[in-house]
Write a protein that binds this DNA or RNA. Structure first.
Lengths: 111, 111
DNA sequence: TTGACATCTCGTTAGGTTACGATATGTTGT
DNA sequence: ACAACATATCGTAACCTAACGAGATGTCAA
């Protein structure tokens, strides 16, 4: 196939696909999804998020660091607490898609 | 915090988040994203997809198997070829979000 | 300054994922 | 039946990730 059916580029170079895949990989964790959902509703500290997700503080902190590296969030220290909030404007749209679609695509990955 | 700010459930139980994370993890690969994009435009064989993505046939076949296990695609044999096509109705919406958002969220993951 | 609290960082470890090569299965034409 | 083709499966090795515990850093109040 030197000139076949798939010779079109709907959107995105290979490098852009790699980037998008990185962002998706960062989203693709149950605790991180829940954190995104919470932060889309407001502003929370590490401890609050950790408790809601039932994980130790340092684990929550690492998830937040990952997502911050990806540009999803920013953080502000206030006293001894650190508040996180959403920075990436597309997060809301994507989370809406996930809530409307994949949060109900049950019974997958059955052996 | 026995009764704090995060005591609400916007959408989704822990199990649903785990499921959604599984689906997202399946999407979160450059080659798989490209395959999804192509299959949203039409019907392709393993070999066609493999060539477009510049991967060996068996690698493409494994990606397709993963996504099929997740309910994204179905396949039909026609002669010695196997055609794949989209089965999950939400894929289009999610891919639109990704194309409109994450396929241009550059410069992340810089050290 | 001391102690309690909140968060972050680091090293280690267990488990998961990916790509590859080899081999197996299924299909067609001769 | 045989050879060529298209796809699928499997074992292996390299790599990546997540969670944990220990300890470091930063902040507050007394």
């Amino acid at each position: 196939m030197t000139k076949g059916k798939t010779d079109f580029k709907p959107v995105g170079s290979p490098a852009e696909f790699a980037e998008a895949a990185e962002c998706l990989k960062t989203l693709a964790h149950p605790v991180r999804l829940r954190i995104v959902q919470l932060l889309l509703k407001g502003r929370y500290t590490v401890g609050e998020l950790a408790e809601d997700c039932s994980v130790p503080d340092n684990v929550a902190s690492e998830h937040l660091r990952l997502m911050q590296r990806c540009g999803f969030f920013t953080s502000e220290r206030e006293g001894r607490r650190v508040y996180y909030q959403v920075a990436e404007p597309h997060l809301k749209k994507i989370m809406d898609c996930i809530e409307g679609g994949f949060l109900s695509c049950a019974d997958r990955n059955a052996s």
